[in-house]
Design a protein around this nucleic acid. Structure first.
Length: 587
RNA sequence: GCCCCCGUAGCUCAACUGGAUAGAGCAGCGGACUUCUAAUCCGCAGGUUGCAGGUUCGAGUCCUGCCGGGGGUACCA
């Protein structure tokens, strides 16, 4: 049991002994570390509820604690806080148990759920850019976090590959190469096996196509028609779709691989295309879906709604499907696949859409009542002008280019570091990649996911202060000590009570791991882990400066310190892995 | 118009769901490498948490109203 839950239980028991509910006993880390290790604020609330004097009540709680040998001090402070300082041996005991535990005291989820994380979601035919970074990095981290606590989790990329953009691309290609067989309705022969266009070609075509449909209603109509024809199985369009799909996925696989992001499922909107018509038919037959202005909709408004709640659109008036349709059908599949919980890691701007889809899914019994559906919204990545990030030339920064920029910067930093001069070239490249990506990922994950943040290339290419490389450097230092001491035949030993404040602070920090994980899971926010990982690294660096292990004369203390370093490395390792950041052996 | 999110140090961001004296990093100034990697550490300075009310023993956090920014608002995703 973690020290905080142990203390909470003891204080809860004390509250019960004097006639209050145990919930008041909740203990949290002290907000004033110079005064105490932990604090319990329950006396304030309990006093208010019962009309008692809070300080008096706090004193009574302290009196009701059954084993005060654990504490170096228990004081009432301020309006009625209980300040808790545990003894150094107690601290050492807890660190020892944590060290002995394979799981580092991390509490397994109960019950363990079958979870699907839907993230990434690049549209077909677009190179990935910085906008895709957030969804990918946050989603990957949440997937790993939920796995860490024992859920069964699948990551699904959910490609955007069945909507209007495909129709727009088809029309754009037709206007450029009308002679291609894909556009000839009478063509019956086999279609070419080679794609008529590369991904770069598609990437160039897409914005042009969007512009044209915006400017000209006739073009928009053509695109809609093409979308409809594709969705209704026109052979030439299907063949084209396959080409677009293949060239897109090929590059996207590479991009995600470079980022260290792995999907268990490479599904997309198109995966459920066979479900669309039956689903719409069923809902129509059940009068859940109705016709309105030629379109088929599901009303999802509720009388208690404060805001206006537009209906969910299942088909356009021409009968073609939208992403609301594929999302609903995808949910149907996910329900059949037995998922208990689905997390959608998608831009906050789609909040209304998910609200509608979730409501429609409940109304139509597409999902069971107890199946969890959550939109894990995240904010926009903005440029200095407060608008979604663009390069100086006004273009989109391709993800591959961004990775190259940060990796090169890390390589240059490596050149400056004396120690790294002798590293083999291959290792230097590997380190540069880890460091560059570490900076990129930490820079993103340390922001709360819902806030819009300013994309600053300088921030991702400077590796000092609160950055990914700071964490990696901490890990490198830990590994280095363990390596050096192992060469000298020194080994980690039992934890002895701390004597220096830097050592004690590190212990206190490490003991917070279970609560940091719990909270990150509760609020589904990796920045909680990022913040905690930074604090672990900081406390370690202070310990490192204050406690010189190699020159320590007391062998028991030295062995204890080594165990502490080893534990810190395990903790940091779990955190880095959960954040999706790799740490090199040296840097 | 209506709805949602945001406004915290010069800049970029946190703040453990209402707790004590609002914290980090960067930038600035001053220190620390003959000792385990200085991508580090220590110190100084920096604040009316957009404004005005309200609830509370206690508000950056909750409620109301303003101001400012962003987003959404059925046939885009």
């Amino acid at each position: 049991m973690s020290i905080i839950s142990d203390l909470s239980q003891r204080f809860g028991d004390a509250f019960v002994r004097i006639g209050f509910e145990s919930d008041w006993g909740m203990v949290v880390p002290s907000q004033r570390p110079e005064l105490a290790h932990y604090q319990c604020n329950g006396a304030l609330g309990a006093a208010q509820r019962s009309g008692r004097d809070p300080r008096e009540l706090a004193a009574e709680v302290i009196g009701a604690i059954d084993d005060d040998s654990l504490f170096a001090s228990l004081d009432v402070a301020g309006p009625g806080f209980i300040n808790i300082t545990v003894t150094d041996p107690v601290l050492a005991d807890h660190i020892q148990s944590m060290d002995d535990d394979e799981q580092l005291g991390i509490r397994p989820a109960d019950p363990s759920l079958k979870v699907l994380v839907d993230y990434g979601g690049p549209n077909m035919s677009k190179s990935m850019h910085v906008g895709h970074l957030r969804a990918s990095i946050i989603g990957e981290s949440l997937k790993r976090l939920l796995r860490l606590v024992g859920h069964h989790v699948d990551g699904d990329i959910h490609l955007g590959d069945w909507g209007m953009p495909v129709g727009q691309l088809i029309i754009e290609l037709e206007s450029r190469h009308p002679e291609l067989p894909y556009f000839d309705p009478d063509y019956t022969g086999p279609y070419p096996t080679e794609s008529p266009v590369t991904l770069d070609g598609l990437s160039e075509m897409y914005p042009v196509a969007v512009e044209r449909t915006k400017a000209d209603p006739n073009e928009a109509e053509r695109s809609r028609q093409a979308t409809f024809d594709l969705q209704n199985g026109r052979p030439g369009y299907l063949a084209l779709w396959q080409h677009f799909h293949d060239v897109s996925v090929e590059e996207q696989r590479r991009d995600f691989e470079d980022l260290g992001i792995e999907f268990d499922l490479w599904r997309g909107e198109s995966t459920v295309h066979d479900r669309l018509a039956p689903l719409v038919d069923r809902l129509t037959n059940e009068n859940i879906a109705i016709e309105s202005d030629g379109a088929v909709i599901v009303e999802v408004a509720d009388p208690s709604d404060k805001k206006e709640m537009p209906p969910l659109l299942l088909t356009r008036s021409d009968g073609s499907y939208l992403y609301s349709t594929t999302d609903l059908a995808t949910l149907e599949q996910r329900a059949e696949d037995g998922y208990d919980l689905v997390l959608y890691v998608v831009d906050a701007r789609q909040g209304l859409h998910f609200d509608q889809v979730f409501r429609a899914a409940r109304r139509a019994s597409v999902v069971a009542d107890d199946m969890g559906l959550e939109h894990i919204a995240f904010g926009t990545v903005n440029g200095p002008d407060g608008k979604p990030f663009k390069t100086r030339e006004g273009g989109i920064l391709r993800l591959a280019d961004l990775i190259e920029i940060v990796t090169d910067a890390a390589g240059r930093r490596l050149d400056e570091a004396e120690i790294a001069r002798e590293y083999p070239a291959a290792e230097r490249d590997e380190i540069a990649t880890m460091v560059g990506l570490g900076a990129l990922k930490f820079g993103d994950l340390s922001n709360h996911r819902t806030s819009n943040y300013l994309f600053d290339i300088d921030r991702f290419t400077s590796f000092e202060g609160k950055t990914g490389p700071y964490l990696q450097y901490g890990s490198v230092r830990m590994q280095s000590i363990l390596r050096r001491t192992a060469e000298l035949g020194l080994e980690p030993g039992p934890i002895v009570p701390p004597t220096v404040s830097a050592e004690r602070d590190l212990m206190l920090r490490l003991l917070r791991l279970p609560e940091a994980i719990d909270r990150a899971v509760d609020v589904r926010a990796p920045n909680v882990l990022a913040e905690y990982a930074y604090e672990v690294a900081t406390d370690f660096n202070r310990f490192y400066e204050a406690c010189h292990i190699l020159s320590e004369k007391d062998a028991a203390r030295q062995a204890s310190w080594l165990a502490l370093v080893d534990l810190a490395l395990r903790v940091l390792g779990v955190l880095l892995h959960t954040l999706g950041i790799e740490a090199p052996e040296r840097m």
